[in-house]
Design a protein around this nucleic acid. Structure first.
Lengths: 109, 109
DNA sequence: TACTTTAGCAACCACAAAGTTGCATATTAA
DNA sequence: TTAATATGCAACTTTGTGGTTGCTAAAGTA
């Protein structure tokens, strides 16, 4: 449906999802859906949807045990976002590129 | 309305927007709205909206000259996204964290 | 002064997304 | 076996978003 980069960016574009992901990353053990729900002012079903989105992006993987589903964070996919940004790093500082734009568009005014 | 990180992530979460941004970054000179529209199969107004979103995120700045508005890319804000990811880098490889989760949740089954 | 080009603005449409409620089902505990 | 807990699934509401069409205004050109 949509490319991987888009799926990944959209997953982390939501603040609640970033919070859930962060909570999972720093958690000392995997957290069940209900445990996560208790930490957020949202219904369990709401959390479930976010987890699904994070799972689709590969940022979370589930571990079913009995009636519970434990959520684990997986930061690896973030590498892909980082890689995408690499190309633009060269334009971050003292942007010669921007200067170039300026010269090309403002000079002959 | 929404935090800066969210604005930024949402701006680059759209593939068309990433394409426009990329086109501006690699362009040898600033491009007018119409010039950009010609490169994308979309109406000028559609492009204008994307430019607005990119501008709000600080990834594009406008340079009005006469009746034209030249768009320039500014990659600097991407630094903020990169900074956000920095924290998670420690969990990228041979994730001790994930191992920890595994041990805590699968051991006493 | 007319005509053309560049663009903004507003309204509108279709669909995605965040979040909810309600209900059914499976697993564990009493 | 009965009750409680953890979850999934479906439907629904609200709001956001990508994109369009139509119209207006400003700037450049003939």
């Amino acid at each position: 449906m949509q490319d991987r980069l888009t799926t990944l960016f959209k997953a982390v574009a939501d603040p609640t999802r970033r919070d859930i992901f962060h909570a999972l990353v720093i958690a000392s053990s995997a957290l069940s859906i209900t445990q996560i729900s208790n930490q957020f002012e949202m219904t369990r079903q709401g959390v479930t949807k976010h987890i699904k989105t994070l799972e689709d992006a590969g940022l979370v993987y589930l571990d079913t045990k009995g009636r519970e589903r434990f959520c684990n964070a997986n930061a690896k996919p973030l590498k892909e976002l980082s890689k995408w940004m690499t190309f633009y790093e060269q334009f971050w500082d003292n942007s010669l590129d921007n200067l170039d734009h300026f010269l090309n568009t403002s000079k002959d005014a």
